[in-house]
Design a protein around this nucleic acid. Structure first.
Length: 437
DNA sequence: ACGAACTAG
DNA sequence: TTTTCTAGTTCGT
């Protein structure tokens, strides 16, 4: 089932880079299993159904901005025919993995850049690569139901730009290879797109560039990379060189180990008691520990934070404490104890906390400990049981549980998702049902 | 060295 | 009444 071009990329460094990006990824995932959403203005909401994190093209056309809180849209949703879905990250993660697996069949140089996009190293003549881009689109659409666009160019920065062109011009059928476009035409487009439209340039850098008379991508491309390196940084120099077709940013095949791990959530309803905050932090620390273990990493430093809503000035409070752990660890009991202890005496009874989180830093690989494995686990199990009892005694039986064992019923601050689609692909009980008539 | 701000998706 | 999450980098002190 390998595509012929896969053989090409194994020999030498690929000469071209494709950026494959799913269109309105979360909305498209929802549409895969609910075709009635096709053509309907649809948004996907953040945790707690707070604000818009993904918009269909129809929703964008209604002028709905990214990040808009749902409560501002709810009143007009009916007249617009606007439909909302809660975010269903299990579904999106599963479709993402299938999507990436399909892309891997087209290249030996795949960089999974985010949940909905990837860079592929490719070789071939310009028109062949357009054909390959179309094949990628067809394969992904047929096997996952996801619509994607493909941008092809000599550098990552230009591939991103090409993808943008493909997305914005339906006539291109979702594929844009910069090499097949007349250079004057590319320059013309670049002279009309603000410099913040390029990868890595946002508000702050944009303002500084504007003040130097650099307003468009074309302006930046024409600037002197050496001078700009001195005024900004080597990253700016690389961006300029990449805009000129000189590759500076390599495809990263191996995911490097994470340097920090954050587990943070907003509450559906404020948490006002210290006892409940202890319960929150216990659960968050265990989630963090589980993730750490999954990545086979240990943490040396923990930061624990809580915060009130930014939208209520009264009684605003953002406590944050960093503690050094006695030794690098992924042990859920040690991490739970540390998380609860860190904010001990810092949290205030009666303050309406809106969110909390645990940040683990100074991460290191877990490594092996083969020789005394049995002794270590026996010892650790004893320790866990011991501490588990202590924590439960102090904070109640629901305050801690390995797995979900300790939770009798979800507390009322847990995330609310009122409009979630089923976990079609990851729960047997929620498999989609197809009827033939 | 550290926390705040910025960037990206 | 209602406003994401994660991971990285850069900047200011």
């Amino acid at each position: 089932m390998r595509h012929p071009s896969a053989a090409d990329t194994s020999r030498r460094k690929p000469s071209r880079i494709a950026l494959v990006d799913a269109n309105s990824f979360y909305v498209s995932c929802e549409r895969v299993f609910d075709p009635s959403l096709a053509g309907v203005p649809t948004v996907v909401l953040s945790n707690n159904d707070g604000c818009v994190v993904a918009r269909s093209n129809e929703a964008k056309a209604l002028g709905i901005p990214m990040g808009e809180p749902w409560f501002k849209l709810a009143a007009r949703a009916k007249e617009w025919g606007l439909v909302q879905r809660s975010s269903n990250y299990e579904l999106y993660g599963d479709l993402s993995a299938r999507f990436m697996e399909l892309l891997g069949r087209h290249t030996n140089a795949l960089e999974v850049y985010s949940v909905d996009e990837a860079f592929l190293g490719l070789n071939g003549e310009p028109e062949e690569l357009v054909t390959e881009g179309q094949q990628i689109r067809r394969t992904v659409l047929r096997n996952t139901g996801l619509p994607v666009c493909v941008g092809i160019a000599p550098t990552k920065t230009l591939a991103k730009f090409a993808n943008r062109i493909a997305k914005q011009n339906p006539a291109m059928n979702g594929v844009c290879n910069l090499d097949t476009m007349p250079p004057a035409h590319v320059d013309h487009i670049m002279s009309r797109v603000p410099v913040t439209g390029i990868w890595g340039i946002a508000g702050r850098l944009g303002k500084r560039l504007n003040s130097m008379g650099i307003f468009t991508i074309a302006d930046l491309k024409a600037s002197d990379p050496v001078v700009m390196r001195k005024k900004f940084s080597v990253l700016m120099q690389r961006t300029i060189l990449e805009l000129n077709g000189i590759p500076c940013i390599e495809i990263e095949l191996e995911r490097e180990d994470k340097k920090q791990m954050i587990f943070s959530r907003s509450f559906s309803t404020p948490v006002t008691t210290i006892a409940e905050m202890h319960q929150v932090l216990s659960i968050y620390a265990q989630s963090a520990a589980a993730r750490l273990a999954k990545g086979e990493q240990l943490a040396k430093v923990m930061n624990v934070f809580a915060g009130t809503s930014h939208f209520h000035q009264s009684a605003s409070s953002f406590p944050s404490v960093t503690v050094k752990l006695p030794a690098p660890t992924a042990d859920p009991v040690i991490l739970t104890k540390a998380a609860v202890g860190a904010l001990d005496g810092v949290l205030m009874e009666g303050v309406p906390y809106a969110r909390a989180g645990v940040i683990l830093t100074d991460l290191s690989p877990a490594g092996y400990q083969p020789q005394f494995d049995e002794f270590v686990s026996v010892h650790e199990h004893r320790n866990i049981g011991d501490l588990l009892g202590k924590v439960k005694g102090k904070y109640g039986t629901a305050s801690i549980g390995l797995g979900r064992a300790g939770m009798l019923a979800p507390p009322d601050w847990t995330m609310s998702r009122k409009h979630s689609s089923p976990r079609y692909t990851t729960e047997w009980a929620e498999l989609p049902v197809v009827k033939a008539s």
